[in-house]
Design a protein around this nucleic acid. Sequence first.
DNA 1: CCCGTAAGTTAGTCATGGCTAACTTATGAT
DNA 2: ATCATAAGTTAGCCATGACTAACTTACGGG
Lengths: 224, 224
Amino acid sequence: MKGFKIQPELSGPVEDYLKVIFELETSAGVAGTNEIAGALGVAPASVSGMVRRLADQGLISHERYRGVQLTKAGRLAALRTIRRHRVIEAYLTTALGYPWDRVHDEAERLEHAASDELIDRMAAAIGEPTTDPHGAPIPSRDGTLNEPALQSLATVPVGARVCIQRVGDRDAEQLRYLAELGITPGRLVEVLAREPFDGPISLRVGRITRSIGAGLAKQILVDA
Amino acid sequence: MKGFKIQPELSGPVEDYLKVIFELETSAGVAGTNEIAGALGVAPASVSGMVRRLADQGLISHERYRGVQLTKAGRLAALRTIRRHRVIEAYLTTALGYPWDRVHDEAERLEHAASDELIDRMAAAIGEPTTDPHGAPIPSRDGTLNEPALQSLATVPVGARVCIQRVGDRDAEQLRYLAELGITPGRLVEVLAREPFDGPISLRVGRITRSIGAGLAKQILVDA
DNA sequence: CCCGTAAGTTAGTCATGGCTAACTTATGAT
DNA sequence: ATCATAAGTTAGCCATGACTAACTTACGGG
């Protein structure tokens, strides 16, 4: 029976730390103290304290004054939390009619309270979705994450027609705006023009032409 | 805009205390420190500490060495939590196929994380139920609890036919047993015999005859 | 190569919500 | 009326996870 260390029930805050560390590792390569603090809305000193505890528990490795990295156990715990979050988001929109701009906050709280059984039942009830409402892939039960190679809409050449795959889910207001524009995963858009110096991008969505800023375009991912 | 004090987001533990104080007040009339401690599985000293904080927040009134009583604000908060709990239980069984012996623990955790919007959407999705799967009435959104007058199966006269209205929901094993016997809310049973000195009670459930102990019978409530 | 700045850490504090051990109060039996 | 006992409280401790203020380290520009 060796090799089976039971997981000692991670607290909500610990799960949040692991989640943002995972996301920072994925996007930025490293997870710095200040970045973690910014993502969680806590003071950098609080991160230093938590980093020590996480390292003591073997969830991250930490080289003083350098960054932080998830261990295998930490990565698995992070992916479990991310799976919960995304399954909950998918369930809330599909089964309970939540608008996609309001599922994030709800999932943020429920992900720490839901049992594995509940998550699996939710996933089964809506047909085992593979992505959440914003297009983010849902890790499998055993912690495998299938992250497809995507490019940002900001880098798509003029004239190309691409399919929206995923949008940033942090800003509810932004999500409402995107829904209004019709920019949702699965939608086809054509890039009509792009102004230089991070200028606006002109799009055709359906039969309507829209112009969006470069910052927003960076949050929109399309197939490569 | 006077008279509108915004509620400062009660913590999970605080909600749990208010809930058990409400339940003890309802069943026992008073809520004593030791009873609260027993119901929550904490030490009596911990209750004393929490009682001070709850009194400071105006959620309970407390006379030293006498009992504890919910204020209007405390009662409302308790009923909100109980509503959440029972709506979640009802939703899990109706919409997600949970067996009735496993909804309690799940609801115990979710009730502190779910928003009012989620609770209302769940309730709407399953047709605004008025009781949870164990027959406990669900408080309304504004904190009204319609507690019907019931009697325990242990006091029903021999020969009477009664309808099961509600069963104790604390013990999962007991719930599994009751389900096996067919003793669920809405079911008709006839009391065939009762032995003296808290002896077993003989029942007809459907066309089958069963005998249950007096302790279990006390946990089964039927229409008066 | 050095040095200022940004990033990170430490020290010390606080609130919450637990615990044990020791004390106080209330109450019922004699 | 008193006194043992159960119920309740206080004191003092701990872990978690936040904070501010002050310090240290790393690093890029000159």
